[in-house]
Design a protein around this nucleic acid. Sequence first.
DNA 1: GGCGCTAATATGTCTGCACATAATGACCGC
DNA 2: GCGGTCATTATGTGCAGACATATTAGCGCC
Lengths: 228, 228
Amino acid sequence: MISGWEGIREEVLRRIRVRDWPPGETIPTEEELAAEFGVARATVNRALRELAGAGVLERRRKAGTRVALLPVRKATLDIPVIRQEVEARGQVHGFTLLTRTEGAPPVPVASRLGLGPSARAIYLETLHLADGRPFVFETRWLNPAVLPKPLPDFGVVSANEWLVAHVSYETGDIAFTAEAADAREAAVLGVAEGAALFVTERTTWTAEAAITLVRLAHVPGYRLQTMI
Amino acid sequence: MISGWEGIREEVLRRIRVRDWPPGETIPTEEELAAEFGVARATVNRALRELAGAGVLERRRKAGTRVALLPVRKATLDIPVIRQEVEARGQVHGFTLLTRTEGAPPVPVASRLGLGPSARAIYLETLHLADGRPFVFETRWLNPAVLPKPLPDFGVVSANEWLVAHVSYETGDIAFTAEAADAREAAVLGVAEGAALFVTERTTWTAEAAITLVRLAHVPGYRLQTMI
DNA sequence: GGCGCTAATATGTCTGCACATAATGACCGC
DNA sequence: GCGGTCATTATGTGCAGACATATTAGCGCC
């Protein structure tokens, strides 16, 4: 027997899959489905809203609900802090602060951080280890103007974790690319120059100003994986 | 004035950001918030449920709602069909079917598809073009047992689009890696051997059997990007 | 035929209430 | 002190009804 909004969601999904309701077709209204299943319209609404959020249905007022023609699959990636990621593999996390300098960042960095030409920024290079072996080479620019004082010793607390605990951010973007290891990256990660590295680049912002720009170069063989 | 579940969601977010409610802290109950904002509990529930889904809050019955200590950022990626992706960049999409064979797949492929040792599968190699230039090299294994007949001419219809229109799938997984181009990939994509390629691997399943395993090797410089 | 206005309609949201469910913490017996 | 039991409590879900809003289809006018 079908009951509850999850039951209705599954039943609707089933009908879509067996092509009772083929792609592009308009399905019955919420009211009709509520009558059929013997539930309140709010319950049907919850189920259909969920499916619309997953990209299976497309809904428009007055026009009704139709089965998505090209179901845009939405994969959700969890972006944990690196320590959690390493520990989730059953390995021991460690890290070394390789460099800490302060100065005017190069132009492309300054522009992505939205800083003026003379603004100063903190630059950190950190090597993250899993079971003592290189795992991720992190290069990070920080905007000191938006950081609470006092700053910690980034050799002891990882910048990543200090930031999530002390600075709240609003938006950001994240990009993934594949890049060949340059000389520095190759040396630090202990791989051949030109090796294919999986690179994550993140920018995070408060409402007004950029907080940090970080680039994570993962050791070859790294896989970013998720269920759909 | 705060009203509507979206307004409440924003207000709660604001209080978290200004640290009225710091990470780890339990926030007022739904009832209390409903009273404060002058709305029904269901409205508060909707707002908090949304934030919990985004990873900002953690909710447990009886225990209450608390601000997430390490906000696991959830990035949602839209996985469109390649044609849409190319067209979204304002380029013209094209593709060429390079190879179509049928036979027993290699062991790692068969195991990931859940096929027996003697099962046969269809193998396709397709080169996708953007404005006439190589964009993605697609290699795909198809499980013919679960495909509706008749099969189309994959030289005319891209396998990707035929599948989304004719086969409904339930689950799947997707993984991203960086890999060095082998001789074949280098030749097809027109890049140097060993170049860093961004690779997407997807497996999709119906309720019972695997449908397809596809590997997309993107041309160097490809960026997978999303807002957080 | 083409254009603009209007009424009809499906979804979006909200309220107030109710009961279900899970997790906690206090109580009780040993 | 220890362990098990049970009442308490916050969230999860449901219902019926209402109004809001976007969008469309049809109508009338030119």
